[in-house]
């Protein structure tokens, strides 16, 4: 009984957890080892270790896949959309949370509904044409910022309540206007949740390939996700190159995840569990 409790059950549990971890790791491992093989050895995408380490694969894909350009594009879209969306969302969430008038409650409700709303790509095309944003980098940034707003407002709104109102009052007595109150007093205190919202937005935009698929015909504007898919179309036989391209595309989000895990996981659960 004691043996059972102290050794057997924990061992069984750890083995089960390890099994699931292995299921996750194997595909990731396959990409890593195959990105270092030559084309012939990578053909079957096997788990075997590379005979020689072909680091030049990475240089090849950067050149042939025009990865420098697509990396800059992805960075531009993810960073700009994240900054715009988190800034506008914090301003909105702050006022909606502090001043719960019936109009503001309605506005909050209306915005949060957007978390579930599917986009209509046909009429959105029309709006993109009317606003002259179709096929432009500004256009895609605006679209990403707009689609991230509902979740960000939802996330930040709950956090604003936790900031004591006494701070506002003190600042107002000291003569702060609304803008100064927000930017010098409230916003610094919102940083933890803004970082969470920002990371989730960044990863969301970086990983997306749906919006560019619809709204960016010009391949010079493509982000890494769309470029890697296109690269795969051209080099299906060269899994070593495709793997290297995949790895480079995944790397930025991987780094963000490993460094900012605490923020990402807290953001996912803070809205979900208590509600």
């Amino acid at each position: 009984m004691l043996l059972n409790k102290k050794i057997l059950i924990p061992t069984r549990n750890n083995l089960t957890a390890l099994f699931f971890c292995l299921l996750v790791i194997i595909p990731v491992y396959l990409v890593i080892v195959n990105s270092l093989k030559d084309s012939a050895q990578a053909r079957t995408m096997s788990a075997a270790l590379p005979e020689l380490l072909h680091f030049e694969n990475f240089i090849t894909v950067v050149e042939r896949g025009k990865l420098a350009q697509t990396f800059v594009n992805s960075m531009l879209y993810a960073t700009s959309a994240t900054i715009i969306s988190t800034l506008l969302s914090s301003m909105a969430a702050y006022v909606l949370s502090r001043n719960k008038s019936s109009l503001n409650r309605l506005v909050y409700f209306f915005i949060v509904m957007g978390i579930a709303m599917p986009l209509n790509f046909f009429t959105l095309t029309k709006i993109m044409q009317l606003t002259q944003l179709i096929n432009t980098q500004v256009g895609i940034i605006v679209l990403y910022a707009a689609t991230q707003i509902p979740f960000n407002v939802f996330l930040i709104y709950g956090f604003v309540d936790a900031i004591p109102r006494e701070l506002d009052e003190a600042a107002i007595i000291d003569g702060c206007g609304p803008l100064r109150l927000f930017f010098s007093v409230i916003f610094p205190l919102l940083i933890p949740v803004v970082v969470t919202a920002g990371m989730l937005s960044f990863v969301g935009v970086w990983n997306d390939f749906l919006l560019p698929l619809y709204y960016l015909n010009n391949s010079a504007y493509w982000p890494m996700t769309l470029a890697v898919y296109n690269f795969f179309g051209q080099y299906q036989q060269d899994w070593n190159l495709v793997s290297a391209d995949i790895l480079l595309t995944v790397l930025p989000v991987l780094i963000i995840y490993l460094l900012g895990q605490r923020f990402i996981l807290s953001g996912l659960t803070s809205g979900a569990v208590k509600g």
Binding site: V95, F110, N120, A146
Partner: peptide, 29 residues
Amino acid sequence: MKNKNYPFYFTIAALALYSVFVVLPGFMG
């Protein structure tokens, strides 16, 4: 008082972007 310290214009940019690019296409659709 509340409207003075927490003015509605703070929400306008977010509300406008969201309305024009997410909600409006849905209803036009």
